[in-house]
Write a protein that binds this DNA or RNA. Structure first.
Lengths: 167, 167
DNA sequence: GACCTTTTCTTGAAAGTTTAACTAGATAGG
DNA sequence: CCTATCTAGTTAAACTTTCAAGAAAAGGTC
């Protein structure tokens, strides 16, 4: 008796299915919740807010496009569109990179910084209420470990060092 | 001396910030990964695939639009558009609800079922490789607990029983 | 039954994302 | 230097999602 050459699928156990479902529910509900909260209070979706936060923490509040895209895990194309929109709002502006004429820096404007300062407390509250205020300290630690493991498995870095970092 | 009426923001601790960042990275990387996997192997984004899975598990492979939307946590509007697209692909068809003339049932077609059968193994593998094969059994259990807590806090059900379930 | 409200689902336009193609500048090899 | 290749970033078009508005049936209430 030979077994099939294509190995049989290892389906999810009942528990795994429940965990997976819970994961999908929680992550989509949370993303929706924060998108709405920020759309209402800051006039932009969550990912755009994340871009401003990145810039606010970068030296001189500016960053190369590619690095910014890598940090928030989006494609360069998506970032181009996003920055164009944020530029229209006056929260970011583009600036040529002195050392590499192909390059662009995205720069957080004073208006952008002001709007971040205004909306950050509300956003932190939302994150707290949805996540940290509901979990025990052990759960927070555990969640961190788990998320780092998952992210680590999906980061291109490591094995395929010279592949484009996304796609 | 009265204290300020607006309570001071409770910022995130260092650990919380790291956990939050890890959460954002892991969830966006995983969602991107599965979207690409399914776009390649099944010709649709992850959420659409989830709709077909729901239908495949429902009695008689059909479900009312609103219930389907609630199950996968998307708005009715989004579902309408999504079902329209899946209908064009021939994987779902609409059917009037006999008991409520406003209602529609989304029905998984045989083609839809066949395509699910074809792509399910690859998708389960992807989920396994990204998540379950990397976590210890305790971590899987813990992740389930954590995600249920978070989802529970965001579910409209409970307090606001008569609010629309989303938005 | 007439009236008002709620629920179900759809629609069209605006906003955001993806995909593939493309421009321009950097880099490496000969 | 010249050419091939790679990298940074943008763009156009197709697709998806959101938002606001609306049609139609159901469910009260008097």
């Amino acid at each position: 008796m030979t077994t099939a050459s294509t190995s049989a699928t290892r389906w999810l156990t009942d528990e795994e299915q429940h965990v997976w479902r819970a994961y999908l529910h929680a992550t989509t509900l949370l993303e929706d919740h924060l998108d709405r909260q920020l759309q209402r209070d800051a006039g932009m979706p969550h990912i755009y807010y994340g871009l401003l936060v990145q810039l606010s923490q970068a030296p001189r509040r500016r960053m190369r496009m590619t690095e910014l895209a890598r940090n928030v895990k989006i494609t360069r194309s998506r970032l181009s569109h996003a920055i164009a929109r944020l530029e229209k709002n006056g929260w970011v502006r583009r600036e040529e990179c002195p050392s590499d004429k192909r390059g662009q820096n995205a720069v957080l404007t004073d208006d952008g910084y002001a709007m971040l300062s205004r909306s950050a407390p509300g956003h932190v509250d939302a994150v707290r209420q949805a996540m940290f205020d509901r979990l025990t300290p052990e759960q927070v630690r555990s969640l961190g470990d788990i998320m780092r493991v998952i992210a680590g498995g999906l980061e291109p870095e490591g094995t395929d060092a010279d592949l484009p970092w996304l796609r």
